[in-house]
Design a binder for these strands. Structure first.
Lengths: 287, 287
DNA sequence: TCGGATTACGTGCACCGTAATGATC
DNA sequence: GATCATTACGGTGCACGTAATCCGA
């Protein structure tokens, strides 16, 4: 049986071009490598190196062996990754969401219905991404804007969210009861970057707008508090985020500004998620 | 980096179902396995076994890991096999032949034209097998009954062989100048088993015949010398096998009893075999 | 003379086996 | 008490590093 370190050494010598260079890269002494390769050759019963001439180098057989060694080492890495990932999947429930707000609702629901498993959400911008991830098992559930038709999916709506803009009182639109996306044309908005589908939606709906995406919620809040730039705010049942002070909140009247979130799982796993479905709030019919 | 023996131990424990059984199978002590698995778990940072209850057994994660470990071990075996095979291919020229006789001719030719590389032949019964082996690189050249048409192949005829039967003088056909396959119907023949295409040919052409296949040429010769059973003999240019004593050799007159052997290589390797083609004898136009 | 591989030699770690202990039926 | 895994302990092989040697440029 060939030990791993022999293959690692061989691959490194091939990559570096000499024993000396590989020894440095591997943090071992040159003699150690020399002996290791002698051992490998003796175990294989084969000459991998051309010796005796100027400097020992890999022969054609050695290069082929190094090539193949990399395959084995990759399989080795795959083993580690697969085991670690499986362990992780056992401990945390990974799901995706088309927007951040549903995650706030689902957090307590998961904590209550699936005790002992931490839930972890990825927010993505498109439903296609999420369905692909579900299909490949990278996530176990998803929050979408609809329940995909067909027998492969099980889902139901559980939360409604409505998009508004927050404006300084001096803004030209601050007196309005409601605005449309078209009214916001040309404005520059400050917003959190990871808002899922909202960002591509706004990009598509608001002509000539500029979006200053922030990496964190804190940065967004801070800039909003210290500038006159318009920003977004959403009305959600049991919202945890207070409306920013000193700002006027104006709802957007377009139909697309209202999102109805569905919790969706593959039909094959519907039974596992029955408690979650039972604990989900009903979608607020108002708003 | 995970050492090979840890994966081997894990796979064996999964296969055997317990540490004790695996320890016996691996010729190590039980504590050694126990420690090895503890080490593996600590390196992976994962619990592979369910401990504390009755008897330690693989958990779901452990089974998955064992599964994957087998993949890695197979890759490891593949590495060894590939390197050894590549080394072998460097030292010996492997080719296939549709019959044994051409091998006797080619032996000296290879020895002369490709010094330092030993030639080794496999005798097969069908051209399909040989062409497949050529295509997959399992052999570098082949002796066929024709040169396959098209630009992919390069070949030329170099030897003619003619099939005869050897009969005891008392045999009903011993006086004939020649016989046909049909004349031999119902006979029982002694013959060497590995004669390539000749065996299926005779099976197809001689009705109701029985063939007593022998594993070695010596066994065949010995039985022929001590029995009245008909046998085969071939007339080949520079034949090295003398006709058996006390027997009558009668040629078979059917067209199929004459074979014209072609030496064939993939066109891509024609240049490498140029010296071989040059040294091959011309096919005997007589006979 | 120098850069780089191999050989020589002593050391320490890590794996091993035996023996004792623990745990569960 | 029997079976099986784990812990304890002493031994040893093996891979390591340092140092010396060898060999071409």
């Amino acid at each position: 049986m060939i030990e791993t370190y022999l293959l690692r050494d061989l691959a490194e010598i091939d990559r570096c071009g000499s024993f000396t260079a590989a020894a440095k890269a591997l943090f071992v002494s040159q003699p150690a490598l020399s002996r290791a390769m002698q051992k490998l050759e003796s175990q294989l019963g084969v000459e991998l190196f051309v010796r005796g001439s100027a400097r020992t180098a890999l022969g054609p057989l050695g290069r082929l062996a190094a090539e193949h060694a990399r395959v084995v080492l990759a399989a080795m890495d795959g083993f580690e990754a697969a085991v670690r990932e499986a362990d992780r999947a056992r401990r945390v429930l990974r799901y995706g969401s088309i927007a951040p707000a549903p995650v706030w609702t689902l957090g307590p629901v998961f904590a209550q219905t699936i005790p002992g498993r931490e839930a972890e959400a990825d927010v993505r911008e498109t439903e296609e991404e999420l369905l692909a991830a579900l299909g490949e098992g990278r996530i176990e559930a998803a929050v979408l804007l609809r329940t995909p038709p067909g027998p492969d999916w099980r889902g139901r709506p559980f939360l409604r969210e409505h998009l508004c803009v927050t404006l300084p009182p001096v803004h030209r639109l601050a007196r309005r009861k409601a605005v449309s996306f078209a009214d916001l044309a040309g404005e520059t908005f400050v917003l959190f970057g990871k808002v899922g589908f909202w960002l591509p939606l706004c990009r598509a709906k608001i002509p000539r707008a500029t979006f200053l995406e922030q990496g964190t919620l804190e940065a967004t809040r801070s800039i909003v508090a210290n500038s006159d730039l318009p920003a977004f705010f959403t009305a959600v049942a049991a919202s945890r985020v207070p409306a920013p002070e000193g700002r006027v909140v104006v709802p957007i009247r377009d139909r697309e500004a209202t999102a109805l979130y569905h919790f969706v799982v593959p039909a094959s796993r519907a039974d596992d998620f029955e408690p979650v479905f039972a604990a989900l709030p009903g979608a607020d019919p108002d708003n």
